[in-house]
Amino acid sequence: MASLAISPLLMIIMAMAISILKLRAAPDEGYDIGVNYGMLGDNLPPAHEVVQLFKQYGITKMRLFDPNHDALEALRGSKLLLSLGVRNEDIPSIGSSPDAAYQWYAAHIQPYQNDILWAYITVGNKINLFSQDPISTNLVPAMKNLRTVLNNNGLPNLFVTTVLAAEVLGVSNPPSAGDFAPAVKPIMLDILTFLSTTNAPLMVNLYPYLAYAGDPVHISLDYALFNASEPPVVDGALKYYNLLDAMTDAFTYAIERQGIMNVGLTVAESGWPSAGNGQITTPELAQMYNRNFVNHILSRLGTPKRPGAYVDAFIFAIFNENQKPPGVEQNWGLYYPNMNRVYPLF
């Protein structure tokens, strides 16, 4: 019997169909995607109810920005994969003292070590790498000290990384020109060398909404929302149908320009606000972005530069948080604090 050849286009269509079906799957099957659990609100539900919310809707991964012990207690036995943050202000002591690194582990990981599924330790969040302050200068030493502690205490496979904002890129368009800003290249090389030797990904915040809101003349809404029918950006042989892929590949090119070829990326934050900036922040647009984002991640299609490469990802965020600045900042949540949906997603 003659074999049937499947065209690349048909393979892509099949992958997208599978991803859509997976998004609509029963909650107990789970979605291979995470959600950020921010706590800047005075009306948020208790942590044990939040963990149940994640489980109810099949969200399998949670990112905490710092070691909140109510949340860590609630996560015991939950089988949620956890990304746990080290506060920026704790980095100088951890970086300058192996004993401080052990004390951080002993306080925030060891009591829960056997009851929580651990994925990442994120050392710092959006650190200002342009500044030569004690936080930035101790970032890589802190990562190294925590890596040693985890290796010595039965957690060699727990990734130690950091979370960066897109501002570290000096050039991002076209993606193949992606490069880090000159001022941060020395520390980026140190970060990437550490990640390369420990097989850990770099975590980055990628927000097509912010790019579109800042330049709606040159960036189309369809491109930002994964809805473009033709590639708005053609970069050599690579065609970009959505802005997230372009942002991701710009980071990849920048990493490779540092001579590091084996560091992947995890999207630590991405999302779309449902209010706060007129007609470009509605529940409908937020739902459209996040649904397309989830489908894109679940498709395992990778990016034009790295087709088929797995990209781990976290949506920002689980709740609207009323202690953030008024406007857009208060409206990134998938749920209201009373745990009603802002819009259906999971």
Rank of each mutant, 00 (worst) to 15 (best):
I135S: 01
K126G: 07
S131N: 11
S220Y: 05
Y223Q: 02
I109C: 04
Y209D: 00
P141E: 09
P186H: 08
V123L: 08
N152K: 09
A211L: 04
V123H: 00
N227D: 14
T161C: 12
T193L: 01
F226C: 07
F130D: 08
L150D: 00
A224L: 05
P201Q: 05
Y223G: 11
F194L: 10
L139D: 03
L202Q: 06
P156Y: 08
N128T: 13
Y207T: 09
F194V: 00
N128R: 15
I127P: 00
T137R: 15
V140I: 08
S176M: 12
L164R: 05
L155W: 02
K144Y: 08
D190H: 08
M143F: 00
H218P: 11
L210K: 04
V168Q: 08
L221R: 14
S196D: 15
I121C: 03
L158W: 11
F194P: 00
A200W: 03
A119E: 14
K126C: 03
T162S: 09
F159D: 10
N151P: 01
V184I: 14
F226N: 07
V140N: 00
Y212R: 02
Y209M: 01
L195I: 12
L202N: 04
N125I: 04
V217R: 15
A106K: 13
P174W: 01
K185F: 00
A211W: 02
A177T: 12
M188Q: 05
L189A: 13
G178Q: 05
A211R: 05
T197P: 05
L139M: 08
A166G: 07
I109D: 06
L129V: 06
N152T: 11
D222A: 14
V204W: 06
F130K: 13
L150M: 10
A181V: 06
L158R: 06
S131R: 13
L221H: 10
L150S: 08
L169D: 10
T197D: 15
A107L: 12
G178H: 08
L169E: 06
L117S: 14
Y112W: 14
H108N: 15
A213Y: 02
L146E: 09
L192Y: 09
I219T: 07
L158F: 13
L195E: 08
N125R: 12
N205T: 09
T137A: 12
H108A: 09
K126W: 06
L221Y: 03
V140P: 00
S220A: 04
V123D: 01
L146C: 01
N227F: 01
G214L: 02
I187H: 05
A183I: 00
H108V: 11
L206Y: 04
F194S: 01
S136Q: 10
M188A: 05
